[in-house]
Each structure stands twice: as C-alpha cells, then as structure tokens.
Amino acid sequence: MVPPSDRDEQAAGRRSPDADGFAAHGPAELDLELRADMVSASIARDELSAWLDAHAWPPAHTIELVLVISEAVSNSIEHGYGVGPEIYDHPGVVRVRARIVAGGPGFRHVDLVVSDDGRWREPAARMQPGHGLYIIRSVAADLSIDGRPAGTTLSIRSQPSPVR
C-alpha cells in the first residue's frame, strides 16, 4: 500500500471548477502505486470509487469503472506477475493513473492507465480464457493494450459521462 501523502491531509471542501469546468472535492488526477498482491484490486476499487465520487461522477458510470479497474489490476497481478493466493510477498508494482478529460460539450470521460513490469504472455489458444479483457472492452469506449516482455500497459477510456 502506498504511504499517506500530503494530498491525504488536504482539507475537505468544495473546490471551484477546474480548467475544464468540473467542480471537484478531490485531486484532478488519481495516481496509485500498488503492490502485486491479492489485496491491491480492492484498494484500487476503493480509491477510484472515492475519487469519482469526489468528482460527482454518476453512480452507474462509477460502478462500471470500478469493475474495469478491478479487472485490469487483477490481470496485472495474476497474469503479469503470476501472483496467486499462495504468494504473499511479491516485489512487483501495479501503477494506476486516472484523469478526467473533457469529452465534448456537456460531457467528460475518464482516461485510465494501468501498467506493470511483469511478463507479457500472448493468450494461448489452449488456455481457458478469463473474462477480464472482455469485461473491460464491453464497458470502455476504448481500450489499447501494449504488451511487451518487460510489462504491460492498458490504456482505457470510459464512456462519456454528463457534467453535473
């Protein structure tokens, strides 16, 4: 888990609209570094949900993005680093970055980037595929995957959400 930062100590209160006109209680970007362990997907879900709530994100869209981040972080841990329930102390790190971007008049979207330094492996035809990437693709407006031997980066754009 990432140690507390000065961002955690900021006083709660309504901020004025940022440069894109989005009124928010929290930081403009979410930036997490998570350990490659089975708890990190839960931490990512909680942090993203709180961040989206602070930006008055619609609840239905929040649920979708929380599902997306859970799948992306879990895939990094399980497939990139090969971590399972029996592994407790893996040195790997999963990075999560999120920012809200204007998406046209009256709309906005979230750009999410989830990256790891694990080992990229093409899915084998004989493997029983999971549903993680299928879920992400079905919820996201756009998904790109950059898989390399030294790690994987998922770049995800959410469906547009109305500015509230």
Rank of each mutant, 00 (worst) to 15 (best):
V66R: 12
L154W: 12
T152L: 09
H55E: 02
G82N: 08
E47L: 08
P123Q: 11
I156E: 07
P91Q: 08
I69R: 08
D53S: 13
A125Y: 10
D53G: 09
P3D: 10
L65H: 03
H79N: 10
R99V: 08
A60L: 08
H25K: 01
P59R: 11
D37Q: 05
R7D: 07
D89K: 12
P58V: 08
S144G: 05
P59V: 12
P4S: 12
S115H: 08
A23P: 06
P27A: 11
A28E: 12
A41P: 12
M1V: 11
A11K: 10
D37G: 04
A125E: 13
L30V: 01
I87H: 13
H61C: 04
Y81H: 05
A72H: 07
V114R: 03
S16C: 01
R148D: 03
F107T: 14
V114L: 04
A54I: 00
A150S: 12
E33Y: 01
V39A: 13
L154A: 03
I69G: 02
A28F: 00
V66N: 02
D117P: 00
G104L: 08
G106S: 07
D53R: 15
A150V: 02
A36Q: 07
V66A: 11
W120L: 03
P85H: 11
G21W: 01
V66P: 04
H61T: 02
A36H: 07
G84I: 02
S158W: 05
A125R: 14
S74Y: 14
G106I: 07
E71H: 09
R35K: 13
G21K: 06
E78G: 05
Q128N: 10
I100E: 06
G21V: 02
I43C: 00
S16Q: 13
R15Y: 01
H79P: 00
E47Y: 09
A72M: 13
L67N: 09
L52I: 03
